[in-house]
């Protein structure tokens, strides 16, 4: 066990150093666009019943679902919250420990190259969602005829992470395996989104 631990630490250090030196030597390195597929965001209730259930918390820097306070955004059904601000006042809401915020930009993911003005960033607050809920208000539109939730085209969310870094993301699908045309049989509350994380202290992606 000990040997293993030591080896891993060495490895980690090497990686850390090498990436550091990379950054230092080359500032124009293109940031990687990553895709998160099938992030499950279940909820309980709905359809007139009180909505509840734990939020699925996501960290951009780790590109992973997390359970600790290092989350940046969290999902439950169609609701998306940020790790910043105050509690909205909904059931099973995680406490905000970070400085997160979000700015909604009408553009394509690739075309958002500079951070939006600080004034455009919003945090959650009592009865206020940084990403508004409801059809057509935030990230999705709901078709009453087909009951399909579609992410609105051209909505890019620039997120200030819990620790003050920046990421931008675009939601591609709300259905499992991101079908091009979801139908009544598609499983909902499975997010697929693309994001770019900017680990450096700069103002551009």
């Amino acid at each position: 066990m000990k040997t293993n631990f030591f080896k891993l630490s060495i490895l980690a250090l090497v990686v850390a150093f090498s990436s550091c030196s990379n950054d230092d030597s080359n500032h124009t390195v293109a940031l990687e666009t990553k895709t998160v597929s099938n992030l499950n965001a279940p909820q309980t209730g709905g359809q007139g019943q009180p909505v509840g259930g734990a939020f699925t918390k996501f960290s951009f820097s780790q590109n992973a679902v997390v359970t600790d306070d290092s989350w940046d955004i969290a999902f439950r059904g169609t609701t998306i919250i940020v790790n910043g601000g105050d509690e909205i006042g909904i059931t099973d809401e995680p406490t905000r420990t970070g400085v997160g915020a979000v700015s909604i930009v009408s553009s394509t993911l690739a075309n958002v190259t500079t951070f939006p003005a600080a004034a455009t960033f919003a945090q959650d607050g009592a009865t206020t969602y940084a990403i508004p809920t409801g059809s057509g208000n935030g990230w999705y539109s709901y078709d009453q005829a087909t009951n399909i939730i579609s992410p609105i085209a051209g909505k890019v969310f620039v997120v200030k992470t819990h620790d003050g870094k920046y990421a931008k993301f675009e939601i591609l699908s709300y259905y499992k395996d991101a079908p091009a045309t979801p139908d009544a049989t598609s499983l909902s509350r499975w997010f697929t989104f693309k994001f770019v994380y900017q680990p450096n202290s700069t103002t551009t992606f």
């Binding site: 394509t108 051209g154 045309t181």
Partner: peptide
């Protein structure tokens, strides 16, 4: 420049 559409293959938005 405020209207976008979603590409059916990549599912990404374009103007």
């Amino acid at each position: 420049g405020e209207v976008f559409a979603r590409d059916p293959i990549t599912l990404e938005s374009f103007q």
